[in-house]
Amino acid sequence: MSAPAYYELYRRSTIGTTLADALDTLISDEKIQPQLAMRILHNFDRIVSELLKSEAGIAKSKLTFKGDLHTYRFCDDVWTFIIKNVLIKLTDVSTNDSNDNEINVDKFKIVACNSRKAGDL
């Protein structure tokens, strides 16, 4: 079968898990079929991916970070980085005059996929 069109990464976000819970309830109550739930989640994947693209102009926050690269791997087209002793700077131009907020964290994991994936376009 062909590969799914959009990444399912964002299903792990709070909004994604909450949506999955709600769909489970609707399936259990026999209000919808599981196939419809799958379609809804595919739509969710597509919409989140599209809205988070810079061209959409919605996400204006920027996150930059520095730290010690502890692990990196590239497997199945997915990059994973584990960074330790990280200084994270959050810039949100929509709320202030580009003054950064800084957070220090011990460990930071990044999972990154190619935004130019075939079906994503």
Binding site: P4, E8, R11, R12, A20, D24, S28, P34, M38, V78
Partner: peptide, 12 residues
């Protein structure tokens, strides 16, 4: 047990 299906095709 809950009569549900797996939604995700892969885990990250």
């Amino acid at each position: 047990s809950n009569g549900l299906i797996e939604f995700n095709s892969r885990s990250y």
